[in-house]
């Protein structure tokens, strides 16, 4: 059943993306959807369609892993983890979303922001 991207996501997370019935609840629950270029349900759809373009979206870096969508998804398929898996695919290719040496106001940020960002946004 799985081919390209959907297979990769399955390998990383054990999630079967084809369970999604595109209800859109994830996107409706997402606190950051307005800053995203592709809403979460669309991301899931694109994985279903094995569309590698989704790997270039900003969404995969903006998602804060807040798990709002996860708690509410009626099909229990955990969109947050799917998005995180896409991010991990990029990270493992060596793509970093931020340059740690160029962060604004780094001295005043709490460490946890920096540590979280380096784990989520760098490889």
């Amino acid at each position: 059943m799985f081919r390209g991207l959907s297979q990769k996501v399955y390998d990383l997370t054990g999630i079967n993306v084809y369970l999604c019935h595109q209800c859109g609840i994830c996107s409706g629950s997402c606190p950051l959807v307005k800053s995203m270029d592709i809403p979460p349900n669309m991301v899931v759809r694109m994985v279903q369609m094995d569309m590698n373009e989704v790997l270039n979206s900003k969404t995969i870096w903006i998602c804060a892993s807040c798990f709002n969508c996860t708690v509410r998804c009626p099909r229990n398929i955990d969109p947050a983890r799917i998005i995180n898996a896409l991010r991990i695919i990029k990270q493992r290719e060596g793509v970093y979303a931020v340059d740690l040496r160029k962060i604004e106001k780094l001295e005043e940020l709490p460490q946890i922001a920096l540590i979280a960002a380096s784990r989520k946004l760098t490889g």
Binding site: S35, I62, A64, C66, N68, L109, A113, L121
Partner: peptide, 20 residues
């Protein structure tokens, strides 16, 4: 009360955090 503060977006894109 259960919303997300946007977390490490403060590093990715500070504007998102300020708005949230």
């Amino acid at each position: 009360e259960i919303k997300c503060c946007s977390s490490y977006n403060v590093i990715y894109d500070r504007k998102i955090t300020e708005e949230t």
